[in-house]
Design a protein around this nucleic acid. Structure first.
Length: 519
RNA sequence: GGCGGGGUAGCUCAGUUGGUUAGAGCAGCGGAAUCAUAAUCCGGAGGUCGCCAGUUCGAAUCUGGCCCCCGCUACCA
């Protein structure tokens, strides 16, 4: 019994180097959304992958004395390993070098061509090999040696190249109409404003092919031309659901995609070019583009030259996958830039995970284990305090869904930890350790109520920290089939009478390694 | 240059349609408790709400000007 389909994607990563923390961040956030939707009953298809063509891949390969093919075969497995390492639940991993994708790209090209939106012309301009960019003559100048250089001072040369063009200009109005009719097409809202103002400023036709290198997908019917890498890259989203077979069950079920999660640097490609290509090809446009921010290392942009690039594998080994996932999704408001630092993550791990949630589970469950023989008692009449904390927990799923409707992951976690804090206050206020001597039945009720709050928090934590949440639910003896959102909200309560396993720490505190502080 | 978003406690930020002593989390300080991963709970402290002027009985919240920061975009030498 599967629910409404939900198709979600990350952008495909460009594997001309090893994965960095930004790749991991996008994959983790997208995974959390995918898992959330699955637990909420949706029939989710979650796609990630790699974008393996383009001149940069070729150049990197040349630099390393490899063929592009060798380069991708070396690097792509590292991206696949990263996705696995961070427990991403993707249903497919697409590579643009795959045969299915070449067929799909050729097909969308032919559809755009059939629509009359592709024409052959000549592309000319001042080209900087170093910048990999064309410049308008006005952007160039002569340096003191008489060499013409671009805005960044790199030499430019005049090139004329035959190129196919896409009639992007034709789609300015349809795009603006789309933005008007679907105001949430791009989130966060600021990004939508930028996109709309860009389109309002007028669109020029887009150069859609190259002839100067051959690492890419050939233009159908003209082998001299290689498709512009973005045509190829964006098309991955429909390839994975069966395009060009638009009558296939998969395509009909999952397209249009519900959500493309991308970085803010590629908003234009997704919010302008991609819907224009699809409109031209007569294919439905995706429902939403969500642009996340960048991660900074102590306020500095990560870059190879500064030498502060973070290796996601090292980070996961240092802090643990789940704590790192939690940190990234809680600390950084989704859609905004965020800061990473050793201090910040240690603080989050220890304060939120170990002290607040982990310790609450430990102190309450060890009391159940020792005082009640590991068995949760049936609760008697509930006090006002009991009911207050229970209804706070019951209200969580509603708040979570509301925040998730606009991908506000951090707000879901915020709401959850507000309840965790309330539960700690409740626990301290009721003092079940004292009730053990004065009023054992009442102690049982307090422990039962606490366990029920932990159950709901545990289920809600599944999308964010899959392994740790599972551990928590194991300690509460929650049956596998009850670990979905259908069992949240007060319509269901934790079972009593069963013997719980002996409690074990779920979130160990992070203690500085004795030698040197980890970076 | 244009458009957009910001400048609020040490840090990260919330602040509805203008209204009594400007909030939260973290850090810091003091206290309580001792069930628990020395975790938890309570309490004080901490802010000229970027600057200036205006509207108003009253402005972080409205208007104008100015100064910084960020994003998108255009362009000049």
């Amino acid at each position: 019994m599967l629910g409404k389909p939900y198709y979600i994607t990350t952008a495909i990563a460009y594997p001309n180097g090893p994965p960095h923390i930004g790749h991991a961040y996008e994959a983790i956030a997208t995974d959390a959304i995918a898992r959330f939707m699955r637990l909420d009953g949706r029939d989710v298809f979650f796609l990630t992958g790699t974008d393996e063509h383009g001149i940069k891949m070729l150049q990197t390969a040349n630099k390393e004395n490899l063929t592009p093919r060798q380069l991708v075969e070396r690097n792509v497995p590292r991206f696949q390993a990263m996705v696995k390492k961070f427990e991403c639940s993707n249903d497919d991993f697409i590579r643009t070098t795959e045969a299915r994708h070449h067929a799909s790209s050729a097909a969308i090209w032919q559809r755009m061509e059939a629509a009359g939106d592709i024409y052959l012309d000549k592309y000319s301009g001042w080209y900087s090999v170093r910048d990999e960019a064309y410049y308008d003559e006005s952007e160039t100048r002569l340096d003191d040696k008489g060499q013409r250089v671009g805005p960044h001072g790199t030499p430019v040369e005049w090139v004329e190249e035959e190129s196919y063009f896409f009639r992007l200009s034709k789609y300015a109005e349809p795009l603006l109409k789309l933005y008007r009719e679907v105001p949430d097409f791009v989130l966060p809202k600021e990004r939508m404003n930028e996109v709309a103002s860009f389109v309002r400023g007028g669109l020029q036709d887009l150069s859609l092919s190259r002839t100067t290198f051959d690492w890419g997908i050939k233009v159908p019917g003209n082998d001299k031309h290689i498709m512009y890498v973005w045509v190829d890259a964006l098309t991955n989203y429909i390839t994975a659901v069966g395009f060009p077979d638009i009558e296939s069950e998969k395509f009909k079920k999952y397209w249009p995609a519900d959500l493309h999660v991308i970085g803010k640097d590629i908003v234009r490609f997704h919010a302008v070019y991609w819907p224009a290509f699809l409109m031209s090809a007569g294919i439905a446009v995706p429902r939403r583009i969500f642009s996340h921010g960048f991660l900074f290392n102590r306020g500095e942009k990560m870059s190879k030259s500064v030498g502060n690039v973070i290796d996601p594998f090292a980070l996961a080994d240092a802090y643990g996958v789940d704590p790192l996932r939690y940190f990234l999704l809680r600390e950084v408001p989704f859609g905004q830039d965020g800061n990473y630092s050793h201090e910040a993550i240690v603080n989050r791990i220890n304060a939120d995970l170990s002290n607040d949630l982990g310790n609450l589970a430990q102190r309450s469950l060890s009391m159940v284990a020792r005082g009640l023989g590991g068995v949760l008692p049936k609760p008697g009449a509930l006090s006002a305090n009991d009911q207050a904390i229970l209804s706070a927990a019951d209200a969580l799923i509603g708040k979570a869904r509301e925040a998730m409707a606009t991908q506000q992951l951090h707000q879901v976690l915020n709401a959850m930890w507000t309840v965790v804090a309330d539960a700690n206050r409740y626990f301290a206020g009721e003092a079940p350790w004292a009730l053990a001597k004065t009023d054992p039945p009442r102690q049982g009720i307090v422990l039962y109520v606490t366990a029920e709050v932990l159950r709901q928090v545990g289920i809600l934590a599944l999308p964010f920290m899959p392994s740790s949440a599972r551990k928590l639910l194991d300690l509460l003896a929650i049956p596998e089939r009850e670990r979905t959102f259908a069992f949240l909200g007060g319509g269901h309560r934790i079972a009593t009478g069963a013997k719980l396993p002996p409690p074990a720490a779920i979130f160990p505190r992070y203690v500085e390694p004795p030698t040197q502080a980890a970076q």
